[in-house]
Design a protein around this nucleic acid. Structure first.
Lengths: 379, 379
DNA sequence: TTGTACGCGTTATCAG
DNA sequence: CTGATAACGCGTACAA
């Protein structure tokens, strides 16, 4: 096992020295013709993308007939259908959904408007999960999803304009921060919209769905009581976090609204805040034996902080989180938590949207949560 | 400080019992008319969105004139301009960018095609950063960004179809997994495309940009040598991770390609893999004193594993990562790392795309990295 | 300076 | 069963 030897300060080789390296032989802007292979008898003016007219000419039929074939109209003879399909293949034709949408008024596309900065997206493990499930649910219905990130006002303006332009059939919106304005602006576009989570500060008629934050939180607290804990405290998110106020309300529903306010702390979801609030709680409520946290990420940090302060989890303090996000399993011990059925929530969002698209009135649906018991409350 | 008392099993109140709750008084599908306020004299058939024709009628001019006003044509009198603008305000008219795009062939929209599952998005702290910076850079040029997540083949198909439909002017694509196919399919659409990171397994002419993975890795290793470490090992990503092979190559450039292969390990970026590979390395190279990791997340996990095995960082083992992602600062000690200038990379991607849109040939640009020295290599 | 007429690529209507 | 023809909403030569 010989020592590693090398000449420091010298890059041995390989890595290109120049930072700019033009790529060879691509004819300037001469976008290669669509169909990659086997285009034999298509003398169509190159550089232009084939239209329905080209196909019609190639097949020796009218544009209308081609359109009928493309849209699976039943009233078209097998012969002409075959001829058209061959012409489509030969020309490499692909439908221009822009023009189709202009004509039909429907795009089969849905925007997912994420009214948050991208940092939130990383901080909240469940956010990507919802987005993914929505994409799946929309795909199953033949629509594709366009993700619009709107963390800044500039992005918000552009996103609204996009929706406003008729580029999508509907909008799924996720807006945690207290910006009721975005819903107002969306409503002004007239495009059907479904909100993820109850809209706060906006009282117009709007379809929405979300977890039963309040009842779920109550259930979590009842669990703490059921295992004999009596000195309960809560760390909830600030009101701009999902379910912040509702989950706090659920805690109060069980312990009573007249509880010592020092037992109920609201904090932003940062590691430092978790550290600080645990210290505060341990000072104010030294004999605390049960803790409810507004989400798993905060719960995981709180567990770490408790352990650093010499408290054993769950022996000294039982901790329960919310979400059942990935953070619940990367914590030690694993977190007892209220599971949100993100797949159901996403499915419901899409369901509600399609109801709107069919002209039905907006509804709201609350999706139940489920208690998942793990090591942070029972040894 | 009284004990918390409550009746377990009973939800105290507030949370709605029914899971379905229809929203009131929204007239079924009767999307409220666009302009929120002050629409006085607009007797336009409701339910329909105002078109350029409505504005023309309202202003008492022709459609062409309205169009000229909308597009800031210089040859239009101040009077008519004012009249048109008033009519626009009165009718609540907003341009239909779909129709405009159909006519002009330009949409001022760009797709960011994320050829990854959403889980990757969460696992890699730098991914959202790139996406955000691209959105900003595009916004500065008047274009908006549409994020297309294509983790499954179904989503990929839909995304390609979207691009193919002429819905965007260009595409920024990020594809780490070895799927050269996606670039081939994008090329077939003829829509200008810029890849983030050198395309692997695809040799067509394509514009791309990325960090100088190889040279950066070499620089990192030289740093380890410069602080006196001689028994070096490397944990790089597998080839489907960004810069996997190139960063490994950079390591080999410095230590020599004939290094004991047991010193150079490739692993997927999971916590378990980090745990395992550190054990392996400690067994094979017990006197190792310097470690290069292909990214910060792996580096952070490796540091934890080293510490659990009784090695002090940096005293016994100096560790250097790559990316300067958020993981570098949430690790203890903070990680020495090669900083990627994500803002520059994103800016370059957008720059290259606009060059293509202007008809210039595809180029590739390598963005330099910078060594950031922190506690994991110097006490 | 403004109006007219046409075309972008598609679908829908109506004859035949 | 198929072929003209008219929209969809907009931009732009061309004419006035």
């Amino acid at each position: 096992m010989s020592e590693v030897v090398a000449a420091p300060g010298v890059c041995a080789g390989g890595a290109p020295g120049a930072t700019i390296e033009p790529v060879a032989d691509g004819a300037a802007g001469a976008r290669e013709n669509g169909a990659g292979v086997s285009v034999e008898g298509a003398p169509r003016p190159p550089g232009r993308r084939p239209t329905i007219t080209d196909v019609a000419r190639q097949a020796g039929v009218s544009r209308g007939t081609v359109s009928r074939v493309l849209n699976d109209s039943p009233q078209v003879s097998a012969d002409t259908r075959a001829a058209v399909e061959q012409a489509v293949a030969e020309t490499g034709y692909r439908v221009n959904t822009l023009a189709r949408g202009l004509r039909t008024g429907s795009t089969h596309r849905v925007a997912f408007l994420l009214n948050e900065g991208v940092s939130r997206l990383f901080a909240h493990p469940n956010l990507p999960v919802i987005v993914q499930h929505c994409s799946d649910a929309l795909g199953a219905r033949g629509s594709s999803m366009l993700l619009l990130m709107a963390g800044s006002e500039d992005e918000r303006r552009r996103a609204i304009e996009f929706v406003d332009a008729g580029a999508v059939d509907g909008v799924l919106v996720l807006s945690w921060n207290a910006d009721p304005d975005i819903l107002t602006r969306l409503e002004a576009t007239g495009v059907p919209t479904v909100s993820c989570g109850a809209p706060r500060g906006y009282d117009g008629p709007i379809a929405w769905t979300g977890a039963d934050d309040r009842q779920g939180a109550a259930r979590a607290v009842e669990h703490l009581l059921s295992i004999g804990r009596r000195n309960l405290v809560a760390i909830t998110g600030t009101d701009d976090l999902p379910g912040g106020d509702q989950r706090r309300a659920g805690f109060l529903d069980v312990v009573g609204a007249d509880v010592d306010p020092r037992r109920v702390q609201a904090r932003p979801d940062t590691r430092d805040a978790a550290e600080e609030v645990v210290a505060t709680l341990l000072a104010d409520v030294p004999d605390l034996d049960g803790m409810f946290c507004g989400n798993d990420v905060m719960a995981a940090w709180a567990v770490e902080a408790l352990q650093r302060n010499g408290r054993r989890v769950p022996d000294d303090v039982a901790v329960v989180g919310f979400d059942d996000s990935s953070a619940a399993l990367s914590s030690t011990p694993h977190l007892t938590t209220m599971r949100q059925d993100f797949e159901a929530i996403a499915g419901t969002m899409v369901q509600l949207l399609f109801e709107l698209l069919e002209g039905r009135p907006p509804r709201s649906v609350v999706v139940p949560t489920e208690l998942v018991v793990r090591g942070s409350t029972v040894g």
